[in-house]
Design a protein around this nucleic acid. Structure first.
Lengths: 237, 237
DNA sequence: TAATAAAGTTAGACTAATCTAACAATATTT
DNA sequence: AAATATTGTTAGATTAGTCTAACTTTATTA
């Protein structure tokens, strides 16, 4: 059985090697990370990560050689994915059933994700009607730790005059989530890009009969999908 | 913030000093416990309890002097009660919402009870419609850690020919819970005592149109209440 | 390529929670 | 009351996860 701490290392490795900058890395297979980077991400000292990397290697959860990079083994990836599955299912529960705000659920899920029970998570999954995305729009890994990330683009990439729907946010900081809440935008909402101003990169969007001018700080962090590109990598939206 | 372990010590102390044998102790104020007893209950060595007792004393959670008994302070009692509140609310959730069996919920609640969030527990309480008892029929402490144990008697004490309803079980062992499940008896079910045989202490009961002969091992561990004694200490049932 | 910077490792220390083994205090029994 | 049994304490060790400080390896740059 994995400890609380070991699980957090595996989760962090999944985030850093599979999710972070996934568009840049796409297809490059650069799924490894340095000791310093992981240490910074987990807010511990590099020395601590060095130690832990050795321990995780013994348990065959990571591939790692002294002075080398760290990467997840198949087993390690699966375990990390399961932590993320639990995290995202709990977030969905807190948001949908207990009426928590978008910006409150992450912290609670950080604790709840460490409850180990496959049965519990499968029951919760069923209770929530098998959601595909959590309240931030991130995909929820299935029972086997598999995740099928649909092709996503940011709102910045959508052409003028096109419509799309918001499916996720890229920035999970409380400030960002509070802003999105404030303007009244929600997952699954339809957004129309009315005008894109090249000069200062401001975009005028419309959703729910409201018009709003937003900056790249916003558009870069909203993931969208349009009806036609749901399953297609090429799409003109 | 209390650690996982500290919380378990406080919970155990509440169980041993307030709940266990509460009928015997009633009114005697003997709410203290020895090092060996607590060690046996927690399945650790007495040496460990000695150490922890000193630490908990520093934190003003227990009263304790070297070679003396351990008892909870007001603060310690409240913290312990809150752990029990969380445990019982989670059990209720697992049983009512996720359709877990009676005998599966305890173990999961042992983990869930350590998630600290007052808001989470209050929301869950609301979601469950403010239950007074958990699935085992034990009272759930309120937001302030207060518990009002209603007057309970065991099925053994009910006179021949009287009816009562089951409100709790005294024995939470898996074997016992499985047996209760097997015979199809549930919290709130009405039970009629048809016959009591003094010779071998067997009792014939009826519930849901079924008749069954049970032993003291059973009747001693079923708590009941009758309509007339709900709020009265004296009752002829 | 040699010097410097960045990245990573090792040794030794700390804390919390546990153990064992030896010892001390208190309670019980003859 | 002395002997014995029960109960509780202390000292020293262990493990996981962390730290700091000193050191080593690898990468970058002048």
């Amino acid at each position: 059985m994995l400890s609380f701490t070991e699980e957090n290392y595996l989760k962090a490795l999944v985030q850093l090697t599979f999710f972070e900058n996934s568009r840049q890395h796409e297809g490059q297979g650069k799924s490894e990370v340095g000791v310093n980077r992981l240490a910074a991400y987990l807010d511990v000292k590099p020395a601590t990560v060095s130690d832990m990397a050795r321990k995780l290697k013994v348990k065959e959860l990571v591939d790692y050689e002294k002075y080398g990079k760290i990467s997840l083994t198949e087993l390690g990836k699966k375990e990390g994915m399961m932590v993320i599955r639990r995290h995202r299912l709990w977030e969905t529960f807190l948001y949908q059933k207990l009426d928590f705000n978008w910006d409150e659920i992450h912290e609670l899920a950080e604790e709840l994700e460490h409850i180990h029970s496959i049965k519990l998570m499968n029951r919760l999954d069923q209770f929530l009607d098998f959601p595909s995305f959590d309240p931030h729009g991130d995909a929820i890994p299935d029972e086997n730790g598999e995740i099928t990330i649909p092709f996503r683009r940011t709102l910045s990439e959508v052409k003028e005059g096109k419509k799309c729907k918001m499916i996720a946010v890229n920035d999970n900081s409380i400030e960002f989530l509070k802003y999105v809440d404030k303007i009244g935008l929600k997952i699954e909402d339809e957004i129309e890009v009315l005008k894109k101003e090249d000069f200062d990169a401001l975009t005028t969007i419309q959703f729910k009969q409201k018009q709003l001018v937003v900056s790249p700080k916003f558009t870069d962090n909203i993931f969208v999908l349009c009806a036609t590109c749901l399953n297609a990598k090429e799409c003109d939206c």
